[in-house]
């Protein structure tokens, strides 16, 4: 689908060629890339969309907006959004601290931020469920207040916060490193308070990268399964998230139900991806 018209700009020889000879001249790297993507990515995507298209629109709509599905979207998106915002705030703070201050073990703190990328999600779910349960290290501090964390929506929030933590830090950090300190000093010399300097001078250029990080984290949290399925009780209308609902539908051999909710989730991920690309383009213009 991609290549033939694009390749000929670097293939200098005469312009007049039939489609077939052109195809034969597509470099083999392109052929492998397209072939691999077709088998591994496009074929499965097509299988899902075609399966979804065998549903009548009315039926599709009925499944996609069934009360249990709506409740699952609500839990998934609201919780993922709050987790992403929390990481937006604290991730920016962590990036700031890592770039601007010196303190012991700073390198270790910096490297550890990537832990959620490297730790298998079932391990994360296991340990978070233990710690945030009523008799766990952190959960026991909240239990006397009547706040249950593990096996509730709050647990889902904790798991989503864990897995989306690195995104904001890692998108903000490079921008902050590149930022000239002179401008801040100028603002301060002109009489701006610390707060004004931060709000009017430091924050605006960081804003696109903070938003990008939030969107990336949100996207990751929405799709997360491993850690959330372990820490949640997976009760419908309470803390059942959309990926777990898909899994349960599949376990009941309800392929239509799984597919419809899968397509909804995928379409939303694609919209977020588009948003992220636009945010990144915005960020580049800023820099």
């Amino acid at each position: 689908m991609v290549s033939s018209p694009q390749v000929d700009e670097f293939q200098k020889p005469p312009a007049r060629k039939t489609f077939l000879t052109r195809l034969a001249q597509v470099p083999w790297t392109w052929r492998v890339t397209i072939g691999y993507l077709s088998v591994m990515l496009f074929l499965p995507l097509a299988a899902m969309f075609l399966k979804a298209s065998t549903e009548s629109p009315a039926n599709f709509w009925r499944i996609a907006t069934s009360p249990i599905a709506l409740a699952a979207y609500d839990v998934t998106f609201t919780t993922a959004f709050v987790a992403a915002l929390s990481n937006g705030l604290f991730g920016t703070l962590i990036a700031w601290v890592l770039v601007r201050y010196d303190f012991p073990l700073k390198r270790l703190f910096d490297a550890s931020v990537d832990l959620p990328f490297a730790l298998p999600t079932s391990v994360a779910g296991l340990t978070l469920a233990t710690i945030y349960s009523d008799n766990g290290w952190v959960g026991s501090l909240f239990a006397p207040l009547g706040v249950k964390i593990a096996f509730t929506r709050l647990g889902v929030f904790v798991a989503m916060t864990f897995i989306s933590l690195p995104f904001v830090v890692r998108t903000v950090q490079p921008v902050l490193t590149e930022m000239e300190k002179d401008i801040e000093e100028a603002a301060w010399c002109l009489g701006a308070s610390d707060f004004q300097t931060f709000w009017r001078v430091v924050l605006p250029p960081l804003f696109p990268s903070i938003l990008t990080g939030i969107a990336l984290g949100f996207s990751r949290a929405v799709g997360e399964y491993g850690s959330t399925v372990i820490i949640a009780s997976n009760t419908p209308f309470k803390d059942l998230i959309a990926p777990v609902l898909i899994f349960q539908r599949l376990e009941q051999y309800d392929y239509s139900g799984a597919t419809v909710i899968g397509v909804v989730l995928l379409m939303i991920s694609l919209v977020i991806l588009l948003g992220i690309n636009l945010l990144q383009a915005w960020g580049k213009r800023y820099g």
């Binding site: 299988a47 799709g223 899994f247 599949l250 899968g262 991920s269 694609l270 977020i272």
Partner: peptide, 11 residues
Amino acid sequence: SISPVVAGLMI
């Protein structure tokens, strides 16, 4: 960007 569960579902 695709949820792992959706990836499994597609397979």
